[in-house]
Amino acid sequence: MAALSLLGTALWGFAQGLVGSNFAQIGADSGAMIVVSLIATAASALLVYYFRRRSSAAERAASWRALWRMSTWGWIALAVIACLTFNALIGGFAQQRGIEMTPTNMVLGDAIRAYPVALLIFAMGLAPAYEELLFRRVLFGRLWAAGRPWLGLALSSAAFALLHEPPGLSASHGWSMLLLWAVYGFMSLCFGWVYYRSGSLWAAYAAHAINNLIAVAAVLASS
C-alpha cells in the first residue's frame, strides 16, 4: 500500500509537471492525494484477498448465517462500545498528562473535511475490507486454524497498531505513539474477538466499519 501510494504520488506529480503546474499547485491538490490513497488501498485489498486463506462453501454459508444472529450483533455492539470507552480513557489520560495525541491519519484533517464522501468510502468500505482481510482473515485466521488463537490475536493486533502508526513515519513520537499503539492494538483485539466469537469475518468488518463511521462523524462534526 505504501509503495502504491508513493508510485501514484510520483505519477501525479510527473503528469502535473508536464502540463506546467508548479510545485505549490501540485502540493495543494489534496483531492488527488485522496484518490491516490483510495486506489492504493483498494489494490492492496485485492492483493490480500488473492492470498487469503481460502474458505469452503460451507464455511462461507456459516459465516453469512452467523452475521444475522442476535448474539453476533451483541458482540459487534460490545466491541464498538469497548473501543469508544477505551479511546475516551486513553484520551483523558493523555490530556491529564499534557500529551498531545495526533494520529497520522488526522494530519490530512483539512482534506478529510473537504472530501467527506471520499472519506466515507475509504473509512467504511476500503480500509475495513483491506484490514479485516489482512489482520483477521490472513494473520489471525491462520494462527487460529493452527490452534493458536491467542497468539494470533496478539500478533495481529501488534501488526495492526504498527501499520497505523509506523515508527519513524508516524506524526507522533514518544508517549504519544505508545498511547496510539495501545488504542489501535485494543481496537484490533476487539475486532479479532468479534471474529473469533461469531465465526464471521463479516461481523468483524461491520464492527470496524461502524467504529470508523463514528470516528468520521466526530471529525466532520468538529469542522
Rank of each mutant, 00 (worst) to 15 (best):
residue 32 A to C: 08
residue 151 L to W: 15
residue 54 R to A: 14
residue 129 A to C: 07
residue 36 V to W: 04
residue 7 L to H: 02
residue 63 S to H: 02
residue 153 L to V: 10
residue 30 S to Q: 07
residue 17 G to Y: 00
residue 99 I to Q: 04
residue 94 A to W: 02
residue 215 A to K: 06
residue 81 I to S: 12
residue 139 L to W: 04
residue 178 L to N: 04
residue 123 A to G: 05
residue 84 L to S: 10
residue 215 A to N: 05
residue 6 L to A: 14
residue 136 R to A: 03
residue 173 H to V: 00
residue 15 A to V: 12
residue 122 F to S: 13
residue 60 R to G: 09
residue 105 N to K: 11
residue 51 F to Y: 12
residue 207 A to W: 00
residue 154 A to W: 01
residue 182 A to M: 12
residue 208 H to I: 07
residue 215 A to Q: 02
residue 81 I to N: 03
residue 68 W to M: 04
residue 159 A to H: 04
residue 45 A to P: 01
residue 100 E to L: 03
residue 168 G to K: 03
residue 151 L to F: 08
residue 4 L to E: 07
residue 105 N to S: 09
residue 81 I to G: 09
residue 98 G to N: 07
residue 66 A to R: 09
residue 149 P to A: 08
residue 28 A to F: 00
residue 212 N to Y: 02
residue 180 L to V: 07
residue 58 A to W: 02
residue 188 S to G: 12
residue 104 T to N: 07
residue 86 F to E: 09
residue 136 R to F: 01
residue 12 W to I: 10
residue 208 H to N: 10
residue 167 P to L: 06
residue 156 S to A: 15
residue 186 F to P: 01
residue 107 V to K: 07
residue 41 T to Y: 05
residue 47 L to K: 02
residue 8 G to W: 03
residue 79 A to E: 06
residue 124 M to V: 11
residue 139 L to H: 00
residue 58 A to V: 11
residue 150 W to Q: 12
residue 188 S to P: 02
residue 127 A to D: 04
residue 206 A to E: 04
residue 19 V to T: 14
residue 2 A to S: 10
residue 145 A to P: 03
residue 183 V to P: 00
residue 188 S to W: 05
residue 157 S to R: 08
residue 82 A to W: 04
residue 218 A to Y: 11
residue 201 L to A: 15
residue 121 I to V: 15
residue 35 V to P: 02
residue 48 V to C: 11
residue 163 L to W: 07
residue 66 A to F: 01
